[in-house]
């Protein structure tokens, strides 16, 4: 007598409990999906034109907007261009070129890279990613390196 009653009760508990779990899931799933931002257009850039080569003085640098990421474009004293990711590999700050020290420096936590982007001292764990620099019709053009 007691057995069928108990199993009916546990059956109902499973149905109600399962229903409740399903309901919670049906609330959480859309909320969690809503909070995950969709991928934006404009992040996938292949190359960016800086401007005429002659306007870029040797021994200076510029931060170039490459899609949504900053790229550090440096012109060495001998006229050679170097382009590196400007995002510090430590904690996401934006690095800068120091012409007096001839290095690349992150002011946030004193991370130092050499002019090839190798992490030299301080907390950065990895080198800065390189980009290609080409001169196209007299303009400086930064491009993703072909992997």
């Amino acid at each position: 007598m007691a057995e069928p009653k108990r199993s009916r009760r546990s059956f109902l508990n499973y149905v109600l409990g399962g229903g409740l779990l399903g309901w919670i899931g049906s609330v959480i799933y859309p909320v969690a999906s809503y909070l995950r931002p969709p991928a934006e257009a404009g992040g996938d850039v292949a190359s960016v034109k800086w401007g005429p080569e002659g306007d870029f003085r040797p021994g200076t640098s510029a931060i170039v907007k490459f899609g949504r990421k900053p790229v550090l474009l440096v012109r060495l004293e001998d006229g050679e261009f170097r382009a590196l990711s400007a995002t510090c590999t430590h904690l996401d700050c934006t690095v800068q070129f120091r012409s007096d020290q001839r290095d690349i420096w992150c002011a946030c936590h004193n991370g130092v890279y050499d002019l090839r982007g190798q992490n030299v001292s301080g907390p950065p764990p990895r080198p800065l990613g390189p980009y290609a620099v080409n001169i196209v019709d007299g303009d400086v053009v930064i491009a993703r390196l072909e992997a």
Partner: peptide
């Protein structure tokens, strides 16, 4: 400015 280098004293 998201496209400027980080200043000192962060």
């Amino acid at each position: 400015d998201p496209f400027a280098s980080a200043p000192q004293g962060i």
